[in-house]
Design a protein around this nucleic acid. Structure first.
Lengths: 226, 226
DNA sequence: AGGGTTAGTAACAAATTAGTAACAAAAGTC
DNA sequence: GACTTTTGTTACTAATTTGTTACTAACCCT
């Protein structure tokens, strides 16, 4: 499940933009050529394509035109060239928006949000969590492990939600218990453990040696993005 | 029938743009203030609003925000100011795109075409839904299963419509209930279940083992395209 | 290494939630 | 207004989840 595919040949800029947009909550994949992008698109669906105009090999315009033959995915162009011909080319080859370099990250984020909004209508920003091989779509109450949907019970879902929202953080047993069951409840002790076990059975490759949900002795549990 | 409403206080520019866009085939109305525009919108529907940022009286941002309270009409901003703050304001008040002055008419036309395309082109298809073996023709209120017409009651139809419009998504019982019956209604509890059962009897090969309408325990139902 | 503590496991019981069928009420039709 | 169809209600049954327990395994410290 990938939201955005970025095609930008400058390694530095590519890394930078990926990092920024990942922080903004998007699942983003960065590649350096049109050819790479093409390969990726054959395997995975995306929601937005960000395309540099000047690329080695097939340039952005040509690639966009090609894409448009059998896809209506939104495209946002990036270009250092500012003359009018360029802008026209962008729109004519099927773009949805256009941005001049140097890229201002805040404006980029606003543009992405605008495109996502009008293309998909949903405000999917914080309703989808991507954490390693696991994705959670809160709006639709779906969970994916390696793009395969999982069926979780409500308690398992709540537990996983708390864990994936805080990857790498150790969450105290008391904290988890209080969040899911409420502060009362005498029993607590074992019931959390039991639910952790059931969750592990569903999301761990080898439930005997849990990698994603790790136990922190005497404290609680920690989720690792794998 | 008006396609575009242009709000621009400069009389010269207003006249010029209207002339150009009229020639390009759009039915356009030019006004000079937000107040005038507001009056116009109460009488007529439009497809696109082009809004100058700097206007006497209510400025473009404020007007756009106001419009957004009860309309989702696409908005394209024009502004002489080019600083970042301005751009952000435009997007945040609900804009669909943004152009800097001086306006290049060719680019403007391309942008308008792009907005029109993504705002209207796609949505018109939605009167017919194809989802797996089921097709729904909303216009004629017909439902087909494997090209064979089904006869559904109103409630069954509404239920199926919500489900097929969101294939793969889990829809909460509360959501379904609220959409079909309205938020009041005390009873709710079982009546949705009962209607689901009746729908299943009509669209499932084996109603005992539903494939299309799957129940998501503790949450609601999900439609799978089969 | 061994005692004490904490976590994991499996089997079971209880609670919750969904499905069913039969019937009553309401709405639509002639 | 009587008949038919749809819709809502209820009591009951079935299925699934959740909580509890007793037991085992792993860990930590001296």
């Amino acid at each position: 499940m990938t939201d955005i595919l970025l095609v930008e040949d400058s390694v530095e800029l590519n890394t930078l933009m990926c990092a920024f947009l990942k922080k903004a909550g998007y699942a983003i994949k960065g590649v350096h050529t049109s050819e790479e992008a093409e390969g990726f698109l054959q395997k995975e669906q995306i929601k937005l394509l960000i395309l540099d105009v000047m690329l080695p090999g097939m340039d952005g315009f040509a690639f966009c035109s090609k894409i448009r033959e059998n896809s209506s995915v939104p495209v946002l162009f990036l270009s250092a060239k500012v003359d009018k011909e360029d802008k026209m080319n962008g729109f004519l080859s099927g773009a949805d928006d256009y941005m001049e370099k140097p890229v201002d990250m805040d404006i980029l984020q606003a543009k992405i949000a605008a495109i996502m909004k009008r293309s998909y209508d949903l405000k999917q920003k914080n309703t989808i969590i991507h954490s390693g091989a696991i994705s959670m779509d809160k709006e639709n109450h779906q969970v994916f492990l390696n793009n395969q949907e999982l069926s979780l019970t409500v308690k398992e879902y709540e537990l996983l939600e708390l864990l994936t929202e805080n990857p790498g953080k150790t969450l105290h047993k008391d904290f988890l218990f209080q969040k899911i069951w409420g502060m009362d409840s005498f029993s607590e002790n074992q019931t959390l453990t039991v639910h952790i076990k059931m969750l592990r059975n569903k999301i761990e490759e080898d439930p005997k040696k849990p990698k994603r949900i790790q136990t922190v002795w005497g404290v609680g549990y920690k989720y690792e993005e794998i």
